[in-house]
Design a protein around this nucleic acid. Sequence first.
DNA 1: CGTTAATTGATCGCACACGATACATTCACG
DNA 2: CGTGAATGTATCGTGTGCGATCAATTAACG
Lengths: 141, 141
Amino acid sequence: MLCFALYDAAHAMQQAYKPLLDPLGLTYPQYLLMSALWVRDDQTLTELGRQLHLESNTLTPLVKRLEAKGLIARERDRADERQLRVRLTREGQALHAEAVRVPRCIRAETGLSDAALTELRATLQALQARLRAAGMDEAVG
Amino acid sequence: MLCFALYDAAHAMQQAYKPLLDPLGLTYPQYLLMSALWVRDDQTLTELGRQLHLESNTLTPLVKRLEAKGLIARERDRADERQLRVRLTREGQALHAEAVRVPRCIRAETGLSDAALTELRATLQALQARLRAAGMDEAVG
DNA sequence: CGTTAATTGATCGCACACGATACATTCACG
DNA sequence: CGTGAATGTATCGTGTGCGATCAATTAACG
């Protein structure tokens, strides 16, 4: 059962992150969203949704909790007030410095070589793309 | 970011299962639990938890929902009344026949060869084991 | 210019998942 | 035997995720 191996490994990964993220006051999905903003700041909700493959019904409360922590700011786009722009606050930017060591700790725990890690990541990305493409076909056909 | 690739692929897998599980009236975690019972019937909650890596606070409502659907039966062990034994009902056993085609459909969607699928599964199992082992060490140390 | 269609977020309800805790049952020890 | 520790399950609160739906804003069309 590949499906269970994937489900199980994802849970194990989330639990491995937990002790590292707790001191930062972040949950795992919150960390992923912050990571997206650390790569590129000032994105709209739709843009973040496209990257994380999450809908507004998941993102809206997620973003609101990060706002409540003072890590990000939410404001409407002046040009198109339908769009919500999400930006890092000074605290949110500062947290990046503390968070940089997190992925290194995880990489150590996985015990994977650089090559193995890169290959696994590529395999998973391809798998995800295939599964989503199959889903799209089905919706069309 | 391996962590996101894993997170994302697991979500894609869950979404790929959805259209196949909807006709069966099962969610993805419910399907995984049923699969465990289809492999070995009449297990205690703790045994199921060890296989799925889930706690009682997740399993109890999950099992109750499957009981509400009439797929399983919950009853206390006669010898040790602390333990809850979970058994398939006739309907639960019958559902197995309808569910056998599900993993084949998914395997087709992944586009993975037998060898690639086996290797990926092994890699994920090893990764899960490493991450959980690292977590145990930390708890001890 | 005004009505309609499309886009964007937000809201609601349901189902996990987990930490912390409570409770009942059984076991171990004196 | 009786009492406290250990075991097994259930409950509570928080935080995702998603389907369905709604409101607000903008764009498109006659």
